[in-house]
Design a protein around this nucleic acid. Structure first.
Length: 417
RNA sequence: GUGGGCGUAGCUCAGACUGGUUAGAGCCCUGGAUUGUGGCUCCAGAGGUCGGGGGUUCAAAUCCCCUCGCUCACCCCA
């Protein structure tokens, strides 16, 4: 056997590339409408960026990163997510000087060294948006509306929107204390993983799906009831913006996202039929990240969506993809002797702006016509001896099977019809 | 990282339980059907170290062990 793709990666073949073009086009169209500018950051960064940005104890940092040393021993990491790199670029390029608020989007591959499964890959593509420089709740709402607009443009239906507030530095600390106090005497009844979570990141206990833990969590103190005044009003503003836009969402007080940088708003969009990996997008506010990465205190909010999962969801919902536009002209030669004439003609046709191709192998006319048919050529130009002696070629409509002889000199005029 | 399922032609799969002549089918691909014309039909052909290694046996795709890969789930996420 020859060498295969690395685990969790895949080739995107020509037969599927149209899906990608389509999705990328729609994303860019919508994001442009909302005023986002694209930014492209490197596919790898210094490892510290992610450790500091995403959080030392997160799953991503502790066990999912592709990390390797460069030739001088500096630790590099293939980016597992897009927000930390964008914030790094924002700081490095002093983008705060461009305008107080900046709206950026990115689109490209991310890398996480997890065990692959349905909808989960080691190299996968995300698009994401970041609004940096405003604490306005309208920005939170806009981010959600923007992404929903992208999904809508692609025809995705039956999406569920989950939303929560995880508080800020101040109120979250208080809440975690309160939660720990509540869980303390019930610790023995938690599952083994949750016992660990209790120490590492008690908020994650809220996310446990085991029945025994669920029972305990059910009556645990809820973060949304323990928010400070500022977070409380911010959250209700976000919700009222969404209500105003007739967006149906579910409040999920147990929604805790796996990246440490989130503050206040956290949200996730899920689509049924994707198996265990049902989140097609998620995001939230991260008011402390810019400062943690060495900048001035700068509030921000963003979102990221998985392109592969969007494709799976689109297929699953049986939404039609755009069809490939066939070749305009296929040039066929009756005899190998006509090859040079055909080649000259081919290039002449291409120079008019039409798409054209021919078969360079020494196949029969029949085999060339089969190729023309297979690639969906609209017309065939057949170069034959008899016609050539009169300075003419055959011009055949592949759909109607009608064909006529035309003068070579007039070919451009004929084609422009 | 832990568990379950599966690895036979490019693709979808038979054959495996009950080892035994040149391992099959459909689709795809290539060529042809009186040689200068596609899609349908018909005919022919190409294509496989049966994931890999070891073992049992006169004989292994088939039984046993190991390994690799894929896949689904847990976990986490997009």
């Amino acid at each position: 056997m020859f060498i295969k793709v690395p685990k969790g990666t895949q080739d995107i073949l020509p037969e599927d590339i149209l899906k990608w073009y389509h999705i990328e086009d729609m994303i860019k169209e919508i994001l442009n409408k909302y005023g986002y500018k694209e930014i492209r950051t490197p596919y790898f960064e210094y490892t510290d960026l992610f450790i500091r940005g995403i959080g030392e104890s997160t799953d991503i940092v502790t066990k999912e990163m592709f990390t390797f040393p460069d030739r001088k021993g500096r630790s590099l990491t293939l980016r597992p997510e897009g927000t930390a790199p964008v914030v790094r670029a924002y700081l490095e390029n002093r983008m705060d000087r461009i305008s107080k608020v900046i709206k950026l989007f990115y689109l490209g591959p991310m890398f996480r060294c997890e065990k692959p499964q349905a909808g989960r890959f080691r190299q996968f593509n995300q698009f994401g948006i970041e609004v940096i420089g405003t604490k306005s709740s309208a920005a939170d709402a806009e981010v959600i509306l923007t992404v929903l607009d992208v999904y809508k443009k692609l025809g995705l239906k039956n999406l569920e929107i989950l939303i929560n507030s995880v508080g800020c530095k101040k109120c979250r600390v208080d809440y975690v204390q309160k939660l720990k106090k509540y869980l303390k005497d019930k610790k023995d009844f938690l599952c083994s993983e949750c016992k660990e979570r209790y120490n590492k990141n008690p908020l994650r206990v809220l996310d446990c799906k085991k029945d025994s833990c669920k029972k305990i969590i059910e009556i645990a103190p809820v973060i949304t009831e323990n928010l400070c005044q500022e977070c409380e009003s911010h959250f209700s503003e976000v919700k009222s913006y969404l209500n105003d836009q007739k967006i149906v969402f579910h409040e999920d007080p147990r929604l805790i996202r796996g990246l440490d940088y989130y503050t206040k708003t956290a949200f996730e969009i899920i689509s049924g039929g994707l198996g265990a990996q049902n989140a097609i997008g998620g995001g939230g506010r991260y008011d402390d990240l810019v400062e943690e990465l060495g900048g001035k205190p700068t509030p921000a909010v963003g979102f990221a969506a998985g392109i592969e999962r969007m494709i799976i969801a689109i297929d699953q919902q049986k939404i039609k993809w755009p069809v490939e536009k066939g070749l305009d002209i296929f040039v066929a030669k009756v005899n190998e002797k006509n090859k040079d004439t055909a080649f000259r003609l081919l290039q002449k046709i291409r120079n008019t702006g039409l798409s054209a191709d021919m078969d360079y192998s020494e196949g029969s006319l029949k085999s060339q016509m089969r190729i023309a048919n297979k690639i969906g050529a609209r017309y065939a130009v057949i170069v034959g001896e008899e016609e050539l002696s009169k300075n003419m070629v055959i011009f055949r409509n592949m759909q109607t099977k009608e064909q006529k002889e035309i003068k070579i000199d007039n070919i451009i005029d004929e084609l422009s019809l």
